[in-house]
Computed example of a mutant assay.
Amino acid sequence: MHRLFVALRPPPPMRVQLVGLMGGGSGLRWQGDEQLHLTLRFIGEVDHHQAEDIAAALGSIHAPPVTFALRGAGLLDRRGVPDTLWAGVTPHDGLRLLAERIGQALRRVGVPIESRAFLPHITVARLSRHAGPIDDILARWSSLASSPVTVAHFGLYESSLGGEGARYEAIARYPLAST
């Protein structure tokens, strides 16, 4: 089985900026540079044959390159308990269009429709259930801002879960080109 997702990899200067803000807090597991990505669609567990169909379907997507900047931060929660610190990105329009086209391509090969609303972000830390107060960390991240970057490709990734967190491997890369 393969645990897959589709994502954009932020360019190196943006990743350096994110890594530079990381640190501190009790019960936070900061993401490493190799883990930083903007998820366009989480797919989940699929068998080898469906993974091949997914890879082929993603190759049929035509969309322009996307431009975005880092802007602010926030928390995601699970059952009312914060578990993820994320860096915000803006604007959402190009990212939303690309995510919609990815969703359409995936539906054609039997991947169910995503039920969650699309919130473009980059996960920067995971919080344990016993994380200490993070108000000071959230305040530091809330002023996050960067210059816009343009990304001209997206990728299909495989996620392997382990004791030290997830490890991501790029399976395929797809170009974005103005039409």
Rank of each mutant, 00 (worst) to 15 (best):
T123M: 09
T123C: 00
T123H: 14
T123S: 14
T123E: 13
V124D: 02
V124L: 09
V124G: 03
A125C: 11
A125D: 07
A125K: 08
A125R: 12
L127E: 04
L127D: 07
L127K: 02
L127Q: 04
L127N: 07
S128V: 01
R129Y: 00
H130L: 03
H130W: 06
H130E: 14
H130N: 13
A131T: 08
G132P: 06
G132A: 08
P133L: 02
I134E: 05
D135K: 07
D136A: 15
D136Q: 14
D136C: 10
I137N: 00
I137F: 01
L138E: 10
L138P: 00
L138M: 11
A139W: 12
R140M: 15
W141Q: 02
W141R: 01
S142F: 10
S143F: 05
S143Y: 07
S143V: 15
L144I: 04
L144C: 10
L144A: 07
L144K: 04
L144D: 06
L144E: 11
A145K: 07
S146A: 05
S146F: 01
S146N: 04
S146P: 02
S146W: 03
S146Y: 04
S147I: 05
S147K: 07
P148K: 06
V149E: 04
V149T: 03
V149R: 01
T150L: 03
T150D: 03
T150S: 03
V151W: 04
A152M: 06
A152K: 05
A152G: 13
A152Y: 09
A152E: 15
H153E: 15
H153M: 13
H153W: 13
H153L: 02
G155K: 15
